[in-house]
Design a protein around this nucleic acid. Structure first.
Lengths: 149, 149
DNA sequence: TCATCACCATGGACTCCATCGACCTTCGGC
DNA sequence: GCCGAAGGTCGATGGAGTCCATGGTGATGA
């Protein structure tokens, strides 16, 4: 994990479809060398995968919301987690410090669908209550942190 | 935008480095046809880009937090936004409905750095107060929603 | 200080892919 | 029924991906 690895990571976070030859030119190595380095970063889990970023509105998922979950005292946390994991609308899920055990990022097409999702989460065993905040607009998302990160 | 486009999007969200030939095999078209479809999806903005996903802990950014910003009454929203945009630690930024105008996802290396970041945000003109919640663990992030999205 | 070992980059070779042009099919409108 | 547009397949070619053998370099230990 040296500075060349970091540059490769930066380049791949900027454009994951760059060819190895292009990466090699940019970092000043040969293509096989880059190939091996990237392979090792993948094997080590430093690079987890490659994702296309989409325009959610264009795909009919124009409503983004953040939902905090407060658990029942004595609830089995794994049950809540399993139930939430089964909901495809939940894009991200963090286990939090504080009153709200989980913080979710969800994406749905309409406010009506959001309502149904909230109802479903509230009905989940172990969930005491939820708090929902709706994103009116997304300024930016998943912006890579250059240099290190 | 037909079902083949949606499948291509799903495949690219799963692995953005798939070759056109591989995508072609999976959707039952020729490679040039897939090439043209993907190019159109990119040109239309439906596909915004391709990003490598990294293990943030491995890169020394093990602390994730969510920060809500309450603005001063009468503050210029653009000033706050510009200031926050200049902070590389801020990975995502949503403009929200509710008391907290902005919701940020931030990533730093240590709690000390988080403290400094919060101080910096609080000192930003237009910011009345902030509310920070720390993620103890990330259950999942940026999970693609299959089928549509 | 020198020998040894392990690791990594290089360069070549071979296979496969990206991509362009030409032609074909299908569908809508006239 | 004909024509044009859109979008598909096919074929060719230039370049990329990837494997392998070789050589150089830095660290370790005697």
């Amino acid at each position: 994990m040296d500075s060349i690895d970091l540059r490769l990571i930066d380049l791949l976070r900027d454009n994951a479809r760059s060819s190895y030859a292009e990466l090699a030119r940019k970092v000043g190595l040969s293509a096989p060398a880059v190939h091996e380095r990237v392979g090792k970063l993948e094997a080590a889990g430093t690079i987890r995968g490659y994702r296309a970023e989409v325009d959610h509105e264009a795909l009919g998922l124009g409503v983004t919301a953040l939902i905090g979950i407060i658990e029942d005292s004595g609830a089995d946390t794994d049950d809540v987690l399993t139930a939430v994991r089964a909901m495809p609308e939940v894009e991200s899920c963090y286990f939090m410090a504080g009153v709200e055990s989980y913080q979710l990022t969800v994406r749905v097409g309409t406010i009506a669908e959001l309502e149904q999702l909230i109802v479903r989460i509230n009905r989940t065993p172990g969930v005491a209550s939820t708090r929902t905040a709706i994103a009116l607009s997304t300024k930016w998302e998943n912006r890579p942190q250059p240099g290190v990160g």
